[in-house]
Amino acid sequence: MDEGITNLLVVGIGGLGVMTAAEILAETAISLGFDVKKTEVAGMAQRGGVVSSHVRFGKRVLSPVITQGTADFLIGFEAAESLRWVPHLRPGGVALVNDMRIVPPVVSVGLYEYPDNPVQQIRDLGVTVTAFDAGAVAQELGNAKLVNTVMLGAVADLLPFSADALKSCLLDRFRTRKPKLVALNDTAFETGRRIASSKQNR
């Protein structure tokens, strides 16, 4: 993968920190000297719509968009949304999924069904997937907003750059904006990392 371009697709719905996570992944790649492009479709993010953020890095990146069947990694912040974007993975691509479910009103009013077990469906498609409820982990750590830090920790050891580079980029961001939250995010990152590695070894 050294020579080519790495495609990270981060997906979910508004309010979960998808775009921030993608931004931190992009900044990490920059800090390591890669050229980077990041794009998202999130016009309706604040209204509970689908958010997808594409991060591409390598020696030189031209088109910002990740085409179907070419993503190296899918980082899904919600169970059904992860399933929705699985076709974007390349053969052999890897998925990290937050198995938290957010049911939209169209399902609540009975117009559509929410799939029974999106993660199992992804697995049945033959995709290598690491999944756990990062939302619950964030709640246990005391703040639902930590979900994206937990997810970044969980993906840290899967990516083609060092987990430390990712973590220092993340914590730097908090150091400038919200210094009080550095320690908590450090813990959340390491918790995500630990859970993901225990899931993989199983």
Partner: peptide, 11 residues
């Protein structure tokens, strides 16, 4: 695509 999926609910 490496895989295809059945249609999902819209959001």
């Amino acid at each position: 695509p490496a895989v295809t999926i059945a249609p999902l609910f819209p959001r």
